[in-house]
Design a protein around this nucleic acid. Sequence first.
DNA 1: CCAATAGTTAACTAGAAAGTTAACTATGGT
DNA 2: ACCATAGTTAACTTTCTAGTTAACTATTGG
Lengths: 116, 116
Amino acid sequence: MAEESDALDVLFSALANRHRREIIHALALQPHSISQLAALRDLSLPAIHKHIAILEDAGLVTRRKTGRTTHLALERQSLRALQYWLSEFHAYWGSGAETLENYENYLSQSPTTSKE
Amino acid sequence: MAEESDALDVLFSALANRHRREIIHALALQPHSISQLAALRDLSLPAIHKHIAILEDAGLVTRRKTGRTTHLALERQSLRALQYWLSEFHAYWGSGAETLENYENYLSQSPTTSKE
DNA sequence: CCAATAGTTAACTAGAAAGTTAACTATGGT
DNA sequence: ACCATAGTTAACTTTCTAGTTAACTATTGG
C-alpha cells in the first residue's frame, strides 16, 4: 500500500519532465540507443543517461546491452498503472456531484457544520 | 507546444506526491476545508497549504472561500489532460511491436534474460 | 595494437521541493 | 471587545533534481 504509493511517486515524477516524456514518445515508435536519444535533444550524454536511469527505475523503460550499444524500449505495462490510477476517477468525471456548487448548496441546508 | 509540455510538467509533478494524491482522493468524494484535510494526515497546516497551492497551480483543485473557511473541490477536467496524454499510447498497448524482443529479432540478435 | 565509438561514473553547481516553527491577518461567536 | 478558529506568510533547513565537464571503461574495426 505504501509501496504502491511509492511506485506512483516514482512513476509520476519520472513523467514530470519534458525530456523524459519525449524519450517515451520516441520509444513508443521504436527502440532507440542512448546516443540516438541524445542526438534528438539538446542534452549531454550524461544527462540523457540520468533520465534513462529514472525512466528505468520507474519501470517505464527496459534496457538491453548488445555489444557496446544499449537498446531501450518502452515498457507498456507501466503505463497501465497510470491508467489504473486514473480510472478510479472515471466514475466522477460525468457526475459533478463533488463540485463546490453542489457542496455549498448542501451546506446551506444543514444548520451546523460538522467537523471530522 | 512548449506551454502544453509545461502544463504536463506541472500536472505530473503535482501528482508525484502521496499527500497530494490522497488529497485528491478525498476531494473526489466530497469537498473539504483545508483544516479537514490537514486533520486527515500527519502534516502541519502550512505544509497542507503548500500542497494545495501546488494542486491549484496544476489546475487539479478549485478553492472557494466562505467566511473564514476555504472549501476545496476536485477539478475533474484537469485529469482529462492526463487521460489524453495517456491515450496516445493506447494504440501500442496491445501490439508489442516496439518491444526489445521484436526489435532485436529484427536486428538478428539473440535474446537474453530480461530483468525484473 | 590503436583509434574511434558507446556508454558510464565522479565531482560539482544551481535551484526547486518539502517540511518545520513562529508570527501574522481575518472572521465568527458570545 | 475579546478570544478562539481558519488560514496565510515568512524564514529557515534539508534533501532532491537537473544539468554541467572531465575522466574513465568497454567494444568494434582497420
